[in-house]
Lab assay of single mutants.
Amino acid sequence: MVDYIVEYDYDAVHDDELTIRVGEIIRNVKKLQEEGWLEGELNGRRGMFPDNFVKEIKR
């Protein structure tokens, strides 16, 4: 799994989504079957977030 950095703020709409803020690092990200969404861990919580608000961290 890979990590992503947040490029744009996003406020969660549903309980299974993450609220993300610019500059945060989302860890252990995986792609979901639902197009346009990823799932990852942030601040001890796992949830979904839109893939166009983040950028993969290349290592």
Rank of each mutant, 00 (worst) to 15 (best):
M1Q: 07
V2S: 13
V2F: 14
V2E: 13
V2D: 11
V2Q: 08
D3P: 05
D3C: 08
D3V: 05
D3Y: 09
Y4N: 04
I5S: 06
I5F: 08
I5R: 10
I5H: 02
I5C: 06
V6E: 00
V6S: 06
E7F: 07
E7H: 03
Y8L: 12
D9T: 02
D9W: 01
Y10Q: 00
Y10F: 08
Y10K: 06
Y10M: 03
Y10C: 03
A12I: 02
A12G: 12
A12K: 08
V13K: 11
V13R: 10
V13I: 05
V13H: 06
H14N: 15
H14I: 05
H14M: 10
H14S: 14
H14T: 13
H14A: 11
D15E: 13
D15W: 04
D15L: 10
D15P: 10
D16M: 11
D16N: 13
E17K: 04
L18W: 03
L18M: 08
T19I: 02
T19K: 04
T19M: 02
I20F: 05
I20N: 02
I20L: 13
R21I: 00
R21Y: 00
V22F: 09
V22T: 12
V22E: 15
V22Y: 07
V22M: 04
G23H: 05
G23S: 03
G23C: 01
G23N: 03
G23E: 01
E24I: 00
E24G: 06
E24T: 05
I25V: 11
I25L: 11
I25G: 02
I25H: 10
I25E: 04
I26T: 03
I26V: 09
I26C: 04
I26A: 03
R27M: 10
R27G: 10
R27I: 10
R27S: 12
N28H: 08
N28C: 08
N28L: 02
N28S: 09
V29C: 09
V29L: 03
V29R: 00
K30W: 09
K30A: 09
K30T: 12
K30S: 10
K31D: 05
K31T: 14
K31M: 13
L32A: 15
L32N: 11
Q33L: 06
E34F: 11
E34P: 10
E34K: 15
E34D: 10
E34C: 15
E34I: 15
E35V: 12
G36Y: 03
G36R: 09
G36E: 03
W37V: 08
W37S: 07
L38W: 07
L38N: 03
E39H: 08
E39W: 09
G40P: 00
G40M: 03
G40V: 01
E41D: 06
E41V: 04
L42R: 03
L42F: 08
L42N: 02
L42A: 06
L42I: 14
N43I: 03
N43D: 04
N43Q: 07
N43P: 03
N43T: 03
N43W: 03
G44K: 01
G44L: 04
R45E: 13
R45T: 11
R46I: 08
R46W: 05
M48G: 06
M48Y: 12
M48Q: 13
M48T: 14
F49E: 01
F49S: 02
F49W: 01
P50E: 00
P50C: 04
D51I: 15
D51Y: 11
D51T: 14
D51L: 13
N52F: 15
F53E: 10
F53D: 05
V54Q: 12
V54G: 11
K55M: 08
K55S: 12
E56D: 06
I57P: 06
K58L: 02
K58A: 13
R59Q: 14
R59K: 14
